[in-house]
């Protein structure tokens, strides 16, 4: 109840004020933290409008409506299934400024195509083993660019802004967030892997009959590197560090993937064996050889899949841990 009249109207207003504001002592609540019900009848909440209130109380407000008669404990909503959550994250991420992703497609593949062209002048084309590896390494690099570099950046930024709360307060598996985000980036990068592989095969005179292997290689290395990229981004204390770490990871994939294994120094070979993307490179490189050793390809892909699942699990745990300190 606020009165802001002209001072000359005071007597009339004072007369109108006679009924005192409700200062009924029976309304005196218990001191301290009162958690007692308002009245004996539960949930009979007093209409707000009868309370004296200050401020511009002329603002029209929705009238309080009586409470519903029946209120049992609510039905417990189910957690959302992985597939549904993945689909929703994927669709949402895909919708993020679509226009900005077209340059991404070019950047991701130009880098790899540039390396292919550069090495074409140096490498002995008749050495199909080395050539196959260069092409496979460049192709996996496209995946690494997206999965390691961009995903680390994205999760680093989300963490820094405190925006992980959005995902963590939805009833969805955290792995669906990592994979859904990675898949949306991958959608724009996938054509780049096909272009790189085809162009590489053309440049280095390699057969393309085994190129269907590109699909499992891209998917499995994508899961693997996306998991790692997400972990890097989530653990980085600052978003700039997440970006740098992601780029560093991509450079490692580049050097160890593109340079043929037999030309690496001892320490490089050890590092190559530790790096999960090497197995993807090897599996794809095998596809360019005249006689494919299928047992080796299956083993390489199995390693990728195993590391991928582990990386994803670690990413999921990290997402929850970092987001709920």
């Amino acid at each position: 109840m606020t009165i802001v009249p002209d001072a000359r109207d005071a007597p009339a207003i004072l007369a109108a004020l006679q009924p005192e504001p409700s200062m009924d002592p029976s309304l005196e609540p218990s001191p301290g933290l009162s958690v007692e019900p308002l009245s004996v009848e539960p949930l009979s909440v007093k209409p707000l409008s009868v309370e004296p209130s200050s401020g511009p109380s002329t603002v029209p407000l929705p009238l309080p409506i009586p409470m519903p008669a029946r209120l049992g404990p609510p039905k417990m909503p189910l957690a959302t299934r992985f597939g549904t959550a993945f689909g929703a994250v994927y669709r949402g991420q895909l919708a993020r400024s679509k226009v900005g992703r077209i340059p991404l497609l070019f950047v991701a593949s130009f880098q790899s195509i540039g390396i292919l062209v550069l090495l074409r002048g140096i490498l002995d084309v008749d050495n199909t083993t080395a050539a196959g590896q260069v092409v496979a390494g460049s192709t996996v690099l496209v995946v690494a660019f997206v999965a390691l570099n961009l995903l680390a950046q994205r999760f680093g930024a989300l963490r820094a802004a405190g925006a992980l709360d959005y995902y963590l307060t939805l009833p969805i598996p955290p792995a669906a967030v990592v994979l859904g985000t990675a898949a949306s980036y991958a959608t724009f990068a996938a054509p780049g892997t096909v272009i790189t592989a085809l162009l590489g095969a053309l440049l280095y005179n390699l057969p393309i009959t085994g190129l269907w292997l590109l699909l499992p290689v891209v998917v499995l290395s994508g899961v693997c590197l996306a998991g790692l990229g997400a972990v890097v981004g989530l653990l980085a204390p600052r978003p700039e560090l997440a970006t740098i770490a992601g780029q560093l990871g991509m450079s490692i994939v580049l050097f160890l993937g593109v340079i043929p294994a037999d030309r690496l120094p001892e320490i490089g070979r050890v590092a190559r064996d530790v790096l999960p993307s090497s197995y993807a490179v090897d599996a794809l490189a095998a596809a360019f050889q005249p006689g494919v050793d299928w047992s080796k390809v299956v083993v390489d892909l199995a390693v990728c899949a195993a590391v991928g699942i582990a990386a994803l699990a670690v990413a999921a745990v990290t997402l929850r841990r970092v987001g709920t300190s």
Binding site: T80, A85, A95, L170, P171, I172
Partner: peptide, 21 residues
């Protein structure tokens, strides 16, 4: 709201609804 910032409003609401089942 960085997680949603670049999403169109309708998509943000629809995908969140899907994630709530």
């Amino acid at each position: 709201d960085l997680a949603l910032a670049e999403l169109p409003v309708a998509t943000a609401v629809a995908t969140t609804a899907r994630m709530r089942g």
